[in-house]
C-alpha cells in the first residue's frame, strides 16, 4: 500500500501545476506535426493539380540558375533551368511514395513475420530470428546499395531495396510486442479456451500490437525518407532528371559555393518532413504507453 501511495504521488504531481497551458500544449504535440504533414502532403500531391506549377523537368537551359522570387519561379531555377519549387513538390511525391510503400511492406511482411514467429515459437521462431539477426548485422545501407545496383536505380527498386531494411525492423518490433502480449492473462485465457491459432493471431494479437507498429512506422517513415535521400544522393536511388530531395541535394552540392540555396531548399523540406513524422511518432508513443 505504501508503494501505491509513494509511486502514485509523483505521477500525480507531474500533472500538477501544468494547468491549462499544458493541456493546450499536449494537443499542440499532435496539432503541430499533424498540420505540418497535411501541408507537406497536400503541397506535394494536391497543389500541383490545382495551381499552375511549372514542369519539374525539361526546363530551358537559358533560364538556368535564376534566383528565388524570379517571375514564374518562386524558388528560382537549377542549372538545368528547372523550377526548384516544382522539383521540391514532385521530389516530395517521390520521397513520400517510397516512404509509405516501404513502411506498408514492412508493416505487412515484417509485422506478420514477427507476430507469427513469436506466436508459433519453437524452431520456426529460432530460424526466423537468426535470419533477421543476419539481416540486421548486415549493414542496411550496404544491402540497399547492392540491391539498388543490381536492380538498377529506379523508384520501384528503391522501394525493394529499402524494404530489406524495414522488414526486419518491423519484424523485431512486432515479435517483441507479441511476446509481451503472451504474458497477459487474457491471452492465456484465450489459449486455454481453445481459440484457434489463426483466430488468436487476427482477433487477439493483431489488434493489440497494431498501435505499437503504427507508432514505429511513424518513426521509421523519418528514417526511410532519410535513407532514400542518401541513396538518391549517392546516385543509387531515383535517377535524375526525375526529381527527388536526395538527388536535388546531390546535384546542388556540385555548385555548393555558387548556389547554396539549391542545397538548402531540399534540406529544409526534408528536415521538416522527418521532424513531422518523428514528432507524431513520439506523441503517439507517449499517448499509447499511457503516459
Amino acid at each position: 500500500m505504501a508503494i501505491v501511495e509513494a509511486s502514485a504521488s509523483p505521477a500525480l504531481l507531474e500533472e500538477a501545476g501544468q494547468g491549462r497551458f499544458r493541456g493546450w500544449l499536449r494537443h499542440l504535440e499532435l496539432i503541430f506535426p499533424g498540420a505540418l504533414l497535411v501541408l507537406i502532403i497536400g503541397g506535394c500531391f494536391v497543389w500541383p493539380l490545382v495551381a499552375a506549377v511549372p514542369d519539374p523537368v525539361g526546363g530551358d537551359v537559358l533560364e538556368s540558375n535564376l534566383p528565388a522570387f524570379s517571375e514564374g519561379h518562386l524558388l528560382g531555377t537549377d542549372p538545368n533551368g528547372n523550377d526548384v519549387w516544382s522539383r521540391i513538390l514532385y521530389g516530395g511525391r517521390a520521397s513520400l511514395v517510397v516512404g509509405v510503400a516501404v513502411n506498408v511492406l514492412g508493416l505487412i511482411v515484417g509485422g506478420t513475420l514477427g507476430a507469427v514467429s513469436a506466436h508459433v515459437g519453437g524452431l520456426l521462431d529460432a530460424v526466423i530470428m537468426r535470419v533477421l539477426d543476419v539481416l540486421i548485422a548486415f549493414p542496411s545501407l550496404v544491402l540497399t546499395l547492392a540491391v539498388a545496383q543490381s536492380l538498377g536505380p529506379s523508384q520501384v527498386n528503391t522501394i525493394f531495396a529499402l524494404a530489406f531494411f524495414s522488414v526486419p525492423a518491423f519484424a523485431r518490433v512486432s515479435r517483441a510486442a507479441t511476446l509481451r502480449l503472451r504474458e497477459q492473462p487474457f491471452m492465456t485465457a484465450a489459449r486455454l479456451s481453445g481459440t484457434s491459432g489463426r483466430r488468436m493471431l487476427f482477433r487477439h494479437i493483431a489488434p493489440n500490437i497494431t498501435p505499437q507498429l503504427v507508432t514505429f512506422s511513424m518513426l521509421s517513415m523519418g528514417i526511410i525518407i532519410v535513407i532514400e535521400g542518401a541513396l538518391s544522393f549517392l546516385g543509387l536511388g531515383i535517377p535524375p532528371p526525375a526529381p527527388s530531395w536526395g538527388n536535388m541535394i546531390s546535384q546542388g552540392q556540385q555548385a555548393l559555393s555558387a548556389t547554396p540555396m539549391l542545397v538548402v531548399w531540399p534540406c529544409v523540406v526534408l528536415f521538416l518532413t522527418v521532424l513531422a513524422f518523428n514528432l507524431l511518432g513520439e506523441t503517439l508513443r507517449a499517448r499509447w504507453s499511457g503516459r
Binding site: F233, I249, L256, F271, L272
Partner: peptide, 22 residues
C-alpha cells in the same frame, strides 16, 4: 535534440561545409 534528430547527417555535413568551409 528532438529537432536535431530530424536532420539527416548528410544534410548536416553539407550545411557545415557551406558555413565553415565555403
Amino acid at each position: 535534440s528532438i529537432t536535431g534528430l530530424a536532420v539527416a547527417n548528410y544534410v548536416i555535413a553539407l550545411l557545415l561545409v557551406l558555413v565553415f568551409a565555403v
